[in-house]
Amino acid sequence: MDTQSLQAFLAVADTQSFSRAAEQLHLTQPAVSKRIATLESQLSTRLFDRIGRRIALTEAGSVLLPQARHILFTVEDSRRALANLSGHVGGRLTLATSHHIGLHRLPPLLKQYTQRHPEVELDLHFIDSEHAYQGVLDGTLEMAVVTLAPHPFEQLHVVELWRDRLCFVCAADHPLASQRRLSLEALCQYNCVLPGAKTFTRSLIEQRFAEAGLQLPVSISTNYLETLKMMCSVGLGWSLLPEKMIDSELIELGVDTAPIHRPLGYLVHTNRTLSNAARRMIEELESA
């Protein structure tokens, strides 16, 4: 088994598509198919069932999947460890961040980093924080700068860098805007627009209302905070948004509850040898 065939196998397994795997690997679809065929020939077993346009792992494919991830993880870790010996800061840094952090926290830092380390190829992914956690866990991402999970992960080294205060807000012409002080119960009489149900931010908000025995009246949800801001500003419901996003389009509400903060920071895998590029990125983050 060669690493290129294993990379093709993982790409097809993750995307459930030969064409999307080809795009991800910057190859042609026939090249990906050939690598999978070679791997199946070497192992004398079929790895994927092709039913119409649907691709699914066979039982053998499911057995190989975690082993393939482990093999590639070990190979890449060895390459990084050897490259680090020279002290050179270059190569690819696969970094994930959320859209909000990418817009509001990282631009000055990324500009400074790229100026100081021009030989680093930044492979930047804008994805949900929850998906970034999974990417660092399975080794497809070297590090992530995201909203931190409310519970620890044993395999991850997590460092908080910032705290976002979440503000209760509504449109200037919303019925709540004229009220000087509100209870959580009063808020629940009106629809709200919030992050998706499975996000770390939503879980923080739900916990606060659940502690008061209340259920959130969510009418619309999306993981894009800029979209939430727009929906809130046109009167589709009240919301909770980071303090940095509050402007003249929104009215901050006075609510009788302790401030809600969400932690932001970076995470890396505890068993991964970090590249020099990642080490320098961490230095930039911690100094900022």
Results as ranks from 00 to 15, higher is better:
235 G>F: 02
265 G>A: 07
244 K>N: 06
253 L>K: 10
218 V>L: 10
265 G>H: 06
212 A>K: 13
267 L>V: 03
242 P>C: 10
226 E>R: 15
195 P>E: 07
265 G>E: 05
205 I>M: 07
267 L>K: 08
221 S>G: 12
198 K>T: 14
208 R>M: 08
243 E>I: 05
239 S>R: 01
257 T>Y: 05
228 L>H: 05
211 E>N: 09
188 C>N: 09
187 L>H: 04
257 T>K: 00
214 L>F: 03
204 L>M: 13
226 E>C: 11
210 A>N: 08
230 M>V: 14
221 S>H: 13
196 G>N: 14
210 A>C: 07
230 M>S: 15
250 L>A: 06
251 I>D: 00
244 K>H: 02
209 F>L: 08
210 A>P: 00
209 F>I: 09
192 C>H: 04
250 L>W: 02
190 Y>M: 02
255 V>G: 06
191 N>D: 12
252 E>K: 10
248 S>R: 12
230 M>N: 15
239 S>L: 05
263 P>E: 00
268 V>C: 05
232 C>W: 11
258 A>Q: 15
230 M>T: 15
262 R>L: 04
236 L>E: 08
182 L>W: 08
243 E>W: 02
252 E>I: 10
267 L>M: 15
207 Q>Y: 07
266 Y>R: 03
260 I>K: 02
267 L>G: 04
213 G>I: 10
264 L>W: 04
186 A>N: 06
240 L>Q: 05
251 I>V: 09
273 T>N: 13
244 K>F: 04
245 M>Y: 01
179 Q>V: 11
266 Y>F: 13
224 Y>W: 05
249 E>N: 05
216 L>K: 08
236 L>K: 11
205 I>L: 14
235 G>V: 05
269 H>G: 10
194 L>G: 08
243 E>A: 12
241 L>C: 00
202 R>G: 00
252 E>G: 03
200 F>Q: 05
203 S>K: 14
248 S>M: 09
260 I>V: 12
179 Q>M: 01
263 P>H: 01
189 Q>S: 14
208 R>W: 00
242 P>Y: 09
206 E>F: 02
188 C>L: 04
225 L>C: 13
235 G>H: 03
208 R>D: 04
240 L>S: 04
202 R>T: 01
227 T>D: 15
252 E>M: 11
248 S>L: 10
248 S>F: 11
240 L>N: 00
253 L>G: 10
204 L>V: 14
185 E>I: 01
220 I>R: 12
268 V>Y: 07
235 G>C: 01
209 F>Q: 09
187 L>Q: 01
195 P>Y: 09
247 D>Q: 03
264 L>F: 08
215 Q>C: 11
217 P>F: 05
269 H>E: 03
266 Y>W: 14
272 R>P: 06
237 G>H: 00
239 S>E: 09
178 S>I: 09
205 I>K: 03
250 L>F: 06
209 F>R: 09
271 N>Q: 13
236 L>I: 00
199 T>R: 10
186 A>F: 01
